[in-house]
Design a binder for these strands. Structure first.
Length: 291
DNA sequence: GCAAGCCTGACC
DNA sequence: GGTCAGGCTTGC
């Protein structure tokens, strides 16, 4: 599932591979993955040069300039759950679920968007619209400051796991890295976000950044479908400590990893390393009673 | 029938 | 405003 490290790997791949190249032809094979009409999309994108690739959270934006020097516009990509964006030789066989082809200048290669589940979306936007999309996202999880992180936790009554995956508060984390960060920070996924102690909150921020940096360095996690623009899987899978390891021994204490559902999403954690915070509250209550 | 990210809409 | 449930989609 493409989260920040996977999207960043795609961004770097594109920046090193297609910058400066022109899109000479557009083929929309499945309009459902587009926001807006295929005709408008093809007209806006065809003939443009790729001049930049930006990312915020899991959102990827390819900056395009038209030959007639109109203001730049952007291709916004959200890979959803099974989206793949690859550079392929034009004559390479078309795999099933290939929904979009962007032919690159000289005609030997093309960019292809593939998406089995079709949860992803591709959209062509003007600068002001992209700014609005990015503005609605919380600070990028790689760049968020301690002040922003602690401020966003304040007053939140929901579970910390759900909070980590709320893209309006902090952008870039999905189910994999949210579970992994909570394990590293030794915080139970059901702990109330706004009730984390300042040390626990700082520990969580440190864990988020550490996990993301390591995953980016290893080109992300290929749990199922994720590949980079050259078709290569990520290398972080063997480093996962809790995600999808239900019943397997914790790498720290050997206790069996448990799975619970939080906010409708499966959550994996170690019951010994990530104890329920409620116990602390009970003990505090008893201490007052026994004086 | 379940899993996922993200959007929409219902509810307080 | 926050919070939660439902729907999209298809391979397992």
């Amino acid at each position: 599932m493409p989260e920040l490290p996977e999207v960043e790997t795609v961004r770097r791949g594109l920046a090193g591979r297609v910058l400066g190249r022109r899109v000479t032809a557009v083929e929309v094979r499945h309009p459902q993955i587009l926001v807006g009409s295929p005709e408008t999309f093809a007209r806006a994108v065809g003939g443009c040069s790729i001049v930049g690739v930006k990312r915020k959270g899991k959102a990827l934006a390819i900056e395009l300039t038209a030959p007639n020097s109109e203001p730049p516009h952007y291709l916004l990509l959200r890979l959803g759950m099974t989206g793949q964006f690859v550079v392929a030789p034009r004559q390479a066989p078309l795999l099933p679920h290939t929904h979009l082809r962007l032919v690159l200048e000289e005609g030997a290669e093309e960019l292809r968007y593939r998406d089995t589940r079709r949860f992803g979306r591709v959209r062509c936007l003007e600068r002001a619209e992209l700014d609005e999309v990015f503005r609605r996202l919380g600070p990028d999880a790689e760049e968020i400051s301690e002040e922003e992180f602690l401020g966003a936790l304040r007053g939140r009554h929901g579970a910390i796991k759900t909070w980590l995956m709320n893209q309006q508060l902090i952008s870039g984390l999905g189910n994999i890295y949210a579970d992994e960060a909570l394990f590293v920070a030794r915080i139970h996924p059901l702990a109330r976000a706004g009730r984390l102690s300042p040390p626990a909150a700082r520990r969580l921020l440190g864990a988020v950044k550490k996990i993301l940096a390591r995953a980016v360095a290893l080109q992300g996690t290929s749990f199922r479908d994720y590949i980079d623009i050259e078709g290569r899987p990520g290398n972080f899978l063997p480093r996962l400590r809790v995600y999808q390891r239900t019943g397997q021994p914790c790498r720290r204490c050997r206790q069996a990893i448990q799975r619970i559902v939080v906010g409708g999403r499966s959550s994996h954690y170690c019951p010994r390393c990530q104890p329920r915070p409620r116990l602390v509250a009970k003990m505090r209550g008893r201490r007052i009673v026994t004086g």
